[in-house]
Amino acid sequence: MVVRARLRQRIRGFFAERKVLEVETPLLVSAAAADPNVPVLAVTPHDRSSNCFLHTSPEHAMKRLLSGGFGDIYQLVPVFRDGEQGRQHNPEFTLLEWYRCGFDHHRLADETIDLLRCLLGELPKVTRIAYCDAFQRWAALNPLTSDSAELAAATASQGGDPGWPRGVQQDYLFGTVVAPQLTGLTVVFDYPAEQAALARLKPADPRLAERFEVFIDGVEIANGFHELADAAEQRQRFEAERKRYAASGRVVPPTDERLLAALEAGLPDCAGVAVGFDRIVMRVTGSDDIRSVMAFPHGEN
């Protein structure tokens, strides 16, 4: 608790100095993205009029603020993800999310490292590597061009199921083979487009999206995008995700029309990133279990 309070203070100081405005957005929302990998907790109101949802990230609301002209903004906020529980996960956790106008994902990655240095002190050596290069180096595969047989063989050799869809196999190999190699502080950038529903595609290669993640010793700490500002393209991606989400048998949240309207009205060119606050606390306290950095972890409260 003491460490958490101290880190919050430092974060607020960091952003105050850089003139980034602290904002607040609702936790309880009526529409949300239906990312099959980020399950939403649905809440049924007493009169059963319509489902509400606990937000999985403040991204949509913050983008609406951006399009409303608020400029650079940040938020330190609890978010909820259904069923995520493990050593690195709790269904309710704290995200630090911020947006910078005029930044692309590389420049925002630099600022993320500055923030981590401010919070963690001396950082391990920083490595930057493109997603495909990391995959090539440690899994000897190219996620964009390798054929299915090669991918399936690699998945099977790691104890996975070669019958999984291609994207799942990639995630599996990234988790079992690549991530453990990301020692020190590693920025992975330019992810395959299907793994970044809210990011811009790379103009030079539309198979890739302008997304980055920061790993410290194999643990994901931050995830950022050069934000997609095209309403029509965003709608298409939402629709594709809704179909996959529905297949999982969950309550599908309504499409966030207000976000799409905000994009239509114009989102400034910006990049945004979300940092797992609890994982920073884990790093500072040298803990390897998220429960030990929360006063009342889920299931024990």
């Binding site: 990998n37 994207g167 599996y172 988790g175 994901e220």
Partner: peptide, 12 residues
């Protein structure tokens, strides 16, 4: 049983 999710993708 351990829940693992190394990045934003599929959880295992």
């Amino acid at each position: 049983n351990e829940f693992v999710k190394p990045g934003k993708g599929q959880a295992f």
